[in-house]
Simulated assay, not measured.
Amino acid sequence: MAKVLVLYYSSYGHIAKMADAMAEGVRQGGGEADVRRVRETAPDDVAKSAGFVVNENHALLTDPNELTNYDAIIVGTGTRYGRMSSQMAAFWDTTGGVWAKGGLVGKVGGAFTSTATQHGGQETTLFSIITNLMHHGMTIVGLDYAYEGHTGLDAVNGSTPYGASTIAGGDGSRQPTEIELGGARHQGKRIAELAAKLSV
């Protein structure tokens, strides 16, 4: 059984919902899933005035050395101008010691994201996450086209081969659709299955 970490940052709850769906997929793939969040770095008054939502059901992960306890790591964050959020970047900036020891080499990695608009930087944000994972020597698994949600044209949905995604809307009112959550489940399942094969 692969042990999989779903590590995320979410300002308004969209990514937290996607993280739970990703973990559900991991379990469907026979894996053990831990869902953790990274620390909020915005000042308290800024976070409060912006209406940030913290999911207290998911514990913080602050020690980068904990990453080495997992067979796979799936990283999710909303986009900030086409790249990962500063909160998530700040966490990965602390992983130099893990990198120096090759602590994540050969493990499986994946990414997921959320944007306000349909073309709001989902793919570049996913690649900004994937770049970090590849520098750590991880094998990347995206959202493959066996997931039928990629091909539907009946509604606007976040969907890229590089990772699951959702569209939040400019005011954050749009919640992840079943197609978007299904993409997260599909990717999580694939990652768990591959991680189990590689860790034998």
Rank of each mutant, 00 (worst) to 15 (best):
H150M: 10
D144H: 13
T177W: 08
K107D: 05
G76T: 04
I74N: 07
R83I: 08
T160Y: 13
K3F: 06
L5Q: 11
G97Q: 13
I167L: 04
G158S: 04
M138A: 11
E40V: 12
T95M: 07
D20H: 03
A2K: 12
A89C: 05
D71V: 04
V75S: 03
S199K: 15
G13D: 03
V105A: 13
Q118F: 07
E40M: 09
Q118H: 10
I191T: 05
T68R: 14
R174L: 14
H119K: 08
A196P: 07
G149V: 02
I73M: 02
F112A: 10
L126M: 14
A168C: 08
S10D: 00
H135I: 05
L143Y: 06
Y70K: 10
H150I: 02
Y12T: 14
E180S: 02
N69W: 04
P43G: 00
G29Q: 01
T68I: 14
T125P: 03
V26Y: 02
N57V: 01
Q28S: 06
V46P: 07
Q122E: 14
I15Y: 00
D44P: 10
S173R: 10
A42E: 12
H135G: 09
F112V: 06
T151L: 14
S159K: 06
D144K: 10
E123M: 07
G96I: 09
R80K: 14
A47D: 00
G97L: 06
V156L: 15
R174S: 11
G13L: 10
A192E: 04
G102A: 03
W99F: 05
F91R: 03
S86M: 11
D20Y: 03
G152P: 02
E56I: 07
A155V: 01
E193I: 07
L194W: 14
V75Y: 09
E40I: 12
G29M: 00
Q118S: 09
L133D: 09
S86D: 09
A21V: 06
L60R: 08
R80G: 11
V54I: 15
D20N: 12
E40L: 14
T177K: 11
K107E: 02
H186G: 07
I74G: 00
G172L: 02
A16L: 12
G13N: 03
H119G: 09
S128F: 13
A16W: 00
A195P: 01
A50F: 10
S199M: 12
D63Q: 12
K17L: 12
M138G: 08
D63N: 15
E66L: 13
Y81R: 13
L7K: 01
S85T: 14
F52Y: 15
K101D: 09
G29A: 04
R37M: 13
V54D: 06
G183T: 09
E66Q: 15
F112M: 10
A192G: 03
T177F: 08
G149L: 11
A192Y: 00
H14A: 11
E32F: 08
G158M: 09
L60Q: 07
R185H: 05
R185A: 03
G183D: 01
A184S: 15
K189V: 08
L7V: 05
I179R: 15
P43F: 09
R174V: 11
G183C: 01
L61A: 04
T117D: 09
I15P: 02
R37F: 06
A195L: 05
S159A: 15
Y145H: 13
I129A: 10
G78Q: 03
I73L: 11
S165F: 05
A168G: 12
N55P: 01
E56Y: 11
K17H: 04
V141C: 10
R27Q: 15
G51A: 11
